Amino acid sequence: MRSLNIVTITDEEGAQMHTLEAIMAATIMVVIILFAVQATSLTPLTSSTANAHIESQMYIIGQDMLTSLDHSSNGQNSDLKDEIINWNGEMYVWNGTNYQSDDNKNNSLDGPVVDLLKLILVDYGIAHNIEFTYSSISESGNYTKYNEKLENYYIYNGDPSDNAVIVSRKVLLSESDVGSSYKTATGIPDVDGSTTALYNIIDVKLTLWRM
């Protein structure tokens, strides 16, 4: 009788396979974004129709970038969420080679988010700002009320032009995601106190425009 060889996949091997799938998916998305950028002429034109087409293409590029950066698998944080969690509250400006802190010239950004910004936007001359918008709270007497949303620049490269486009993506932060010093460093508060595991919801706003 012919014997059957049963191959079992351990948890570690399964995790490696999922990680490889996530890397491949992210790589494919980046390739698609690069193809879209290279296939689109982003030169300034006087025609309003042509400008509208350029703005539409930049909007799609921005959406694809945020979607790619917010991709996660196996319960891991996305690159975009990690960027928010690891933020020290400083504003960064492109200095020609790196994103440098406006307050401390010795601090600069690195990592997957920066790599994608350089590859898709910087290399093609697309100016950009990134803002983190979040809810604030104020206590009065025995109740807490929500204030209007506040905005902090994460990356600032100047005032956008009239033909700028804005894309955004919401990222949920839990109390377990941040440390005790996070509010002090960033100004982002725990809007739900100890009632639930929710900490805050960050609206990441990416603004793109041609110089």
Rank of each mutant, 00 (worst) to 15 (best):
L66N: 00
D79T: 08
P112E: 01
Q100Y: 01
E90L: 13
S68E: 11
K81Y: 07
G75C: 04
D64A: 09
M65F: 06
D102A: 15
D82V: 10
M91N: 10
I54K: 05
N95C: 06
I54L: 00
H71F: 14
D110V: 04
N88D: 15
Q57D: 10
I84C: 08
G62A: 06
Q76C: 10
Y92W: 01
D64T: 07
N88M: 03
L80N: 11
G96F: 05
N106C: 06
N88I: 05
E90Y: 10
G96C: 02
I60R: 13
M65P: 03
I54E: 00
I61R: 07
L80G: 12
M58E: 01
Y99S: 03
G75W: 03
T97Y: 08
N106S: 15
D70T: 02
S101L: 02
K105S: 13
N77G: 08
A52F: 05
K105P: 09
Q76A: 12
L80F: 07
L66Q: 01
K81E: 04
D103Q: 15
Y59T: 14
H53G: 05
S68Q: 12
L109P: 04
P112R: 00
Q100K: 13
D79E: 09
L66D: 04
Q76G: 09
A52M: 07
D64E: 10
D70Q: 03
N88K: 04
D82I: 13
S108V: 10
Y59I: 05
N95M: 08
A52N: 12
T67P: 06
K81C: 01
P112H: 00
H71E: 05
G62L: 12
H71T: 14
K105L: 12
I54R: 06
Y99N: 02
G96D: 00
I60P: 05
P112D: 02
G62R: 04
N98C: 11
N104V: 14
S108F: 11
Y59R: 11
